[in-house]
Nucleic acid binder design. Structure first.
Length: 485
RNA sequence: GGCCCCUUGGUCAAGUGGUUAAGACAUCGCCCUUUCACGGCGGUAACAGGAGUUCGAAUCUCCUAGGGGUCACCA
């Protein structure tokens, strides 16, 4: 038996926004295809002209490329089953719908939107689900001809059976059966001759020989209608893999309105793309072992739909943060600095020693955007800080001791020729030892005077080096003055 | 409301008839320490509820509850 190649697709509609949930769908479809040595196809679903957004398609390309999800076929790279943009395929669908009319699986419906609306409103008022009553299915040939001749607009509806059941097997949810009676005669071709999403999907997936349809589980309940279509055409039904949504909390999907739902939002906040991909891969999937950190290639290696969850997953920003921090810590010093530089500039410290900045910041930063706030004191001392900061129980310091410390430390530092970590370190430690005081007792007041802040990334020595001798001495003297006052 | 799906700690989750019910994030405590972090060690914390089936149920069945989805000439 010939083994067919796995083909999956990601079929976004270009909205100008790469939702985390969509990215995850793309990721899973990509991982599934690649883990089976198959092809991953990108198709743009833009049948709704009213929703056209400038530059939206480019955004899809850019994000996918950036995270390393490469498509084997798509609008820009081509392929044997193109075009890959639905609007360029728009003439392909109508003939298929007409074929269905001939075979009795579809029919023209001349009912106006208003009529439908009315019937729907009435159904709602009576508390029952609306279903089109198949009125136009029973039009005589002559009537149809007459309406056609009059140019009355129509849609083409699927003629679903009114009895019996339809079942299908989802690879993760198992077999699902529905009563055909609950199915509505959905519109296949709109009055403007454009296909509806559902119809275009079936045609395109078949024509592009998609073997595994991976999509959000909101399509679970319309899948029987898809299958009826495949059957009407006599086409092979693809495998279905429906994926639960990404949630903001137990009752809401992660949505655009939350402000935190797009890939771009996270990148702009200083998250690393590797961390984002890694994190979302784990939202609704697990590798079956205890690994949590994965590169894209490792994900391809480890991915299996067996690890996909049936229930929705709540997006946990805290865990993403943690994972991001893990990735930041693994960066080389060069890469860390490259990522941090825009934020250094924002903080006005881009001229400082990047080795030391890296040393003190890399283990502390979880998201790059928080960096300026962490180092604000470097660029500018808040001279109005309270001298109560000099008091610290654990370091055994108070204002009095701090004053004494600064009084003997300042001249020594002033006399120091080589202003670097080693020399400052040796000098300060030597002084503490000579005076028989805890390192902390000496270092605390120095750091406070240098930073004017209780909590700082890095200690007194690193901060002194970063500030440079001149500024460091100035701050120390200012601190001493405050203590004397 | 009809139909479909889901339900293990606060969160992500392992688990497929017999386990002291993993692990991670978060949280709390301790250690390390030049503040804060990093790192290390440890603690708190869960099978939605109820009936069955079975020698034995988180695992199988049914009911209830809760949640989600869907019911467009939107995708």
């Amino acid at each position: 038996m010939e083994k067919t190649t796995v083909r999956t697709r990601f079929a976004p509609s270009p909205t100008g926004y790469m939702h985390i949930g969509n990215l995850r769908s793309a990721l899973y479809a990509y991982l599934f295809a690649k883990s089976h040595g198959g092809k991953f196809i990108l198709r743009i679903e833009d049948t709704d002209l009213a929703r056209y957004v400038e530059g939206a398609v480019d955004l899809v390309y850019r994000v996918l490329k950036e995270v390393g999800i490469h498509w084997d076929e798509g609008p820009d790279v081509g392929g044997d089953y193109g075009p890959y943009i639905q609007s360029e395929r728009k003439d392909m669908y109508l003939p298929y719908a007409e074929q269905l009319i001939k075979s009795g699986h579809a029919y023209r419906c001349f009912c106006t939107k208003e009529e439908i609306e009315e019937a729907r409103a009435q159904a709602q008022a009576e508390g029952r689900a609306y279903k089109y009553d198949k009125k136009c299915l029973h039009l005589s040939k002559a009537e149809i001809e007459r309406k056609l001749a009059e140019g009355i607009p129509y849609v083409i509806r699927q003629n679903v059976p009114t009895s019996g059941t339809t079942s299908f097997t989802d690879e993760i949810f198992g077999t699902i059966t529905v009563d055909n009676e609950t199915l509505d005669d959905g519109v296949l071709i709109k009055a403007d001759k454009m296909p509806t999403y559902n119809f275009a999907n079936v045609i395109d997936d078949h024509l592009m020989q998609i073997t595994h349809v991976m999509r959000g589980m909101e399509y679970l309940s319309s899948t029987p209608k898809y299958n009826l279509l495949y059957e009407a055409f006599g086409w092979e039904i693809p495998k279905y893999i429906h994926m639960p949504p990404v949630m903001r909390d137990a009752q809401h999907k992660l949505s655009k309105r939350d402000g935190d739902a797009s890939y771009e939002d996270f990148i702009n906040k200083g998250y690393l793309k590797e961390a984002i991909v890694n994190y979302i891969s784990l939202l609704g999937w697990n590798p079956g072992d205890e690994r949590e950190k994965f590169t894209l290639n490792e994900l391809v290696e480890a991915f299996s739909i067996k690890g996909l969850s049936k229930s929705p997953a709540i997006f946990d920003p805290l865990k993403l943060r943690w994972l991001n921090a893990q990735y930041i810590r693994e960066l080389s010093a060069e890469d860390f600095t490259r990522h941090a530089m825009p934020y250094y500039e924002k903080a006005g410290i881009a001229h400082m020693n990047t080795d030391i900045l890296c040393k003190i910041l890399q283990p502390r930063v979880e998201v790059f955007s928080e960096l300026p706030e962490m180092v604000d004191f470097l660029a500018k001392l808040d001279e109005g800080y309270s001298i109560e900061l000099f008091t610290n129980k654990k370091s055994k310091t108070d204002a009095q001791i701090s004053r004494e410390v600064l009084e003997f430390v300042i001249p020594e530092l002033k006399a120091l020729e080589a202003w670097d970590e080693t020399h400052i370190h040796d000098l300060l430690m030597g002084l503490a030892q000579a005076r028989e005081m805890k390192n902390g007792t000496l270092l605390w007041p120095v750091r406070i005077a240098l930073a004017g802040k209780q909590v700082t990334p890095g200690g007194a020595i690193e901060i002194a080096v970063l500030l440079g001798k001149c500024e460091a001495i100035r701050r120390l003297e200012l601190g001493l003055e405050k203590l004397k006052a």
